[in-house]
């Protein structure tokens, strides 16, 4: 005899899976739309590669090696590449869930039409996240292939890089979705892009260890998700795994859950009146 609690949990999981399964329709819709616009997606693949060449090799010529806390020295390119991988996952997810969802939500009224079908708000939110995740994973895989080819993968831990990068992308798509429902006008985009995404990209230990910055900035950056994403992914590709990376992961799980709750609530308030 299964306990009522177990049955309830199973029912809940079953329902959750149903939602995810139905959400694939939204992914199909986005694939249909992007069939005509693959170039847009491909530009996202190129971006981290340009950064890797432009900054990794350029600055790498000056810096050459970076000392890790465990005493090893690694090439600057190997130091910066995992950070660019994490950033690519963030950008893929955030651009999709902020820009595209904003327009569908506020101008195109796409979701109002979809909500008149058996699809619900959860299906729409999860569908958009799945799609953002697929887009981000394309960026992540291409970046990983390049890193492998250039010999920038230094540890067998790197086998976990793909799933972890996908989780990072999931965290940022939930965050983007939560944020986009707060935006009112097109001008509002400058706020998340200019004041959140851009500084995170610069200060999260992407190009330099954060110890290079004053203490207040260090403390502040350690509260942001990109910092932990970079620290975790860099740990995997360089083999620098420790308690810190466990904390990074725990932080991301917490951040993801919080973002999911806010995203669902905001979407509901925006669409159900």
């Amino acid at each position: 005899m299964a306990s009522p609690v177990a049955v309830a949990t199973q029912g809940g999981l079953g329902r959750a899976w149903d939602v995810v399964w139905r959400a694939r329709r939204l992914v199909e819709r986005n694939v249909l739309v992007y069939r005509h616009q693959w170039i847009v997606i491909l530009s996202g693949v190129a971006e981290p590669i340009f950064y890797l060449i432009g900054i990794g090799m350029g600055l790498g010529g000056l810096v050459r090696t970076v000392g890790l806390p465990d005493g090893r020295s690694i090439s600057y390119t190997a130091y910066v590449a995992p950070a660019l991988l994490a950033t690519a996952a963030m950008n893929g997810a955030v651009f999709e869930t902020i820009f595209n969802v904003f327009f569908k939500l506020n101008f195109r009224k796409t979701y109002d039409g979809i909500l008149a079908t058996p699809m619900g708000i959860s299906e729409i939110a999860i569908g958009e996240m799945l799609w953002a995740l697929m887009r981000a994973s394309l960026y992540a895989v291409s970046m990983l292939v390049l890193m492998t080819a250039l010999g920038l993968i230094l540890s067998p831990w790197a086998l976990l890089t793909l799933p972890v990068t996908l989780f990072v992308a999931a965290t940022f798509s939930a965050t983007g979705l939560a944020g986009t429902a707060f935006l009112r006008t097109v001008q509002d985009f400058d706020i998340p892009m200019g004041l959140i995404v851009m500084p995170m990209f610069l200060f999260s230990g992407t190009f330099f260890p954060i110890s290079a910055y004053p203490i207040p900035i260090q403390v502040f950056m350690q509260a942001t998700p990109l910092f932990h994403s970079i620290s975790l992914i860099r740990g995997l590709t360089t083999g620098l795994m420790g308690l810190e990376q466990v904390w990074d992961f725990a932080y991301l799980v917490g951040f993801f859950s919080l973002a999911m709750v806010i995203a669902m609530r905001r979407m509901e308030r925006k669409l159900i009146k």
């Binding site: 199909e28 819709r29 249909l32 195109r108 796409t110 039409g113 058996p118 699809m119």
Partner: peptide
């Protein structure tokens, strides 16, 4: 609230998939 990113026909066929 038609899906303006899709064609006329795609609007109908995609809508059918939601059902």
């Amino acid at each position: 609230n038609l899906d303006t990113e899709l064609t006329v026909r795609e609007n109908l066929e995609m809508y059918a998939r939601y059902f």
